[in-house]
């Protein structure tokens, strides 16, 4: 692991909301150019971890570092610069319902650059092509199917070619063929653009297919982080079971 450097570091992260402890001990790091997959049961705190990484929830000074910064304590203009360097694909897609797919995908560009509108449209078209959605550019999110929404959300997340991409359960609700294509796309982004990817997933086949590193959460604690190979032979019964189930299929 020498030679590479950690682009994301999480140290003793805890998260308390409305008097409930949601995360009590999260520790992991992600190296540049890796695909790191966060696995864990529903309600184990995966989305909450991502929100801490994104600065949407407050984290103590040293608890979170993404590209050397803790986004939750940045000033407004620093935060804007930070967000220029990341792309996020939310669990629900989170496309803005009042905008067309094309406008959604173009929004980060419009925000962060002064590029002319016709050029932005060009970039948007390219990104939509990458996810095979070029025909949906003028449609509204309400007119898309679940799988199309996910792909549109991915197109929006990568529109600026961010060095770090976060995806919250990109595969949920997709059929296996679409899912495979989506995974391939993410692998391509990593290999061709050197993107670092942090993704949450339930899907064992996706993990086996693409993960360089897995982080296993259980009830707000990161009980394992390491390679897929190590994970398969982990001491934790739950982790072994997770992989056994997937490979038995």
């Amino acid at each position: 692991m020498e030679g590479k450097h950690s682009i994301i570091e999480v140290k003793d992260l805890i998260s308390v909301m409305n008097n409930t402890v949601i995360l009590s001990d999260i520790n992991f790091h992600v190296e540049q150019g890796e695909i790191a997959v966060i696995i864990g049961g529903s309600g184990s705190g995966k989305t909450t971890v991502l929100k801490h990484l994104l600065g949407l929830y407050h984290s103590m000074d040293q608890a979170v570092s993404v590209m050397g910064e803790n986004p939750s304590v940045l000033e407004e203009h620093e935060q804007k610069a930070f967000y220029k360097k990341i792309g996020v694909m939310y669990q629900e897609g989170a496309l803005l319902k009042s905008l067309t797919v094309g406008e959604n995908v173009g929004l980060p560009l419009e925000q962060h650059t002064n590029l002319p509108p016709d050029f932005i449209t060009e970039v948007v078209r390219l990104k939509l092509q990458m996810v095979q959605l070029e025909n949906a550019i003028d449609k509204f999110p309400s007119q898309l199917s679940g799988g199309m929404l996910k792909r549109a959300a991915l197109a929006r997340a990568i529109v600026m070619d961010p060095p770090v991409l976060f995806c919250d359960e990109p595969g949920s609700g997709l059929d296996p063929v679409t899912l495979y294509a989506l995974d391939e796309l993410i692998i391509n982004l990593k290999e061709q653009l050197g993107m670092t990817v942090v993704m949450v997933t339930h899907d064992v086949s996706s993990v086996l297919h693409m993960a360089d590193r897995v982080i296993f959460l259980e009830k707000g604690v990161s009980i394992f982080q390491g390679t897929v190979k190590d994970a398969k032979y982990s001491d934790h019964a739950n982790i072994r079971e997770f992989f056994a189930r997937g490979m038995g299929e």
């Binding site: 804007k80 967000y83 220029k84 996020v88 939310y90 989170a94 496309l95 803005l96 929004l107 925000q111």
Partner: peptide, 16 residues
Amino acid sequence: TMKVTSETDALKTMGV
């Protein structure tokens, strides 16, 4: 509704 569907979060992380 936008909050529940994470649209407000999405806006924030797009720098809006």
